[in-house]
Write a protein that binds this DNA or RNA. Sequence first.
DNA 1: AATCAAATCTGCATATTTTGCAGAAAATTA
DNA 2: TAATTTTCTGCAAAATATGCAGATTTGATT
Lengths: 160, 160
Amino acid sequence: MISHMEKNPSTLDDLDFAILSCLQKDGRMSFTEIAERLNVSVGTARTRLNRLIDDGIISIIGRVDPDKVGFGAYAHIAVYVRPATLKEQVAETISQLPEVSFLASTSGEYDLEVDVMCQSNSHLVQFVNDISVIEGVYQTKTTLYFKVYKYAQPDLGLLK
Amino acid sequence: MISHMEKNPSTLDDLDFAILSCLQKDGRMSFTEIAERLNVSVGTARTRLNRLIDDGIISIIGRVDPDKVGFGAYAHIAVYVRPATLKEQVAETISQLPEVSFLASTSGEYDLEVDVMCQSNSHLVQFVNDISVIEGVYQTKTTLYFKVYKYAQPDLGLLK
DNA sequence: AATCAAATCTGCATATTTTGCAGAAAATTA
DNA sequence: TAATTTTCTGCAAAATATGCAGATTTGATT
């Protein structure tokens, strides 16, 4: 017996996708407006949307513009872990750091990718120094993001 | 005479930062709740928040979990542009593609970084082929994201 | 195919939130 | 200091969210 079915792609129907699309456009769209656009009752829109959020299918987040808010150094750091067995542990440590906005393990030449927002170049240098001394971090390569052209959500229509 | 003052870091006060913090935690937090937490009137919270959004300082977006929603291939593509003068033009073209969730110019070895969400590996291959034939794209290097450990917003407290 | 159980949807009444606006307070400028 | 602009507050009206009971649909089992 399964008490709570975890959502996976196959359990998302057209209505779910339509709600996700609405939220991608405007994370503060009201239940009422979503319901009207999709021709369902407010209750339905609310139930679905709340479940999508609870199940972690979508997160409604406020994303600050790093420049406008004062993060002068937005960067990408490639992290090489040796021995490779320490990867999870290193990831755990790095994910705690407040500057980190994105952290993932990768298939490529390096093992972990860390995106960070720092106040200034010197703060960034400090940050890179800090992660360089974590046990298991063998090497790092830092790349600055100069100009962000797009920061959006992929078109869910691609999944149809 | 300046009719509309563009916001820059120095014009954001403590209340603005406090509102941004609330929205980073929950993009759907109501004006009322924000007002109560910060001990200001609802009208003030509303005016500030709307202005922060209008000025592009923060965007409230629904971010879907690529795995759960059916994007089986989440990847990072390093793009080398030759001649370098075509960079803006290439960026413009790539930013139109629906798979692209992030696009920025960088300081490093490569010129542009493109993050994409594709349905499958074959869709990703197709995508990489498509951008490889764009005029000015000299070379690409694709790295898959295997596991995302963190996808959050940086701590605004770092700016204090 | 019929039945039952579980899940989902709808619509309504109530509670809460948002919106528009006018006047008070604060900040800015001359 | 006075004038001007900007920001804040509080109130009433409109819009929205919430809780819930009953209807509908879906899915599993026989």
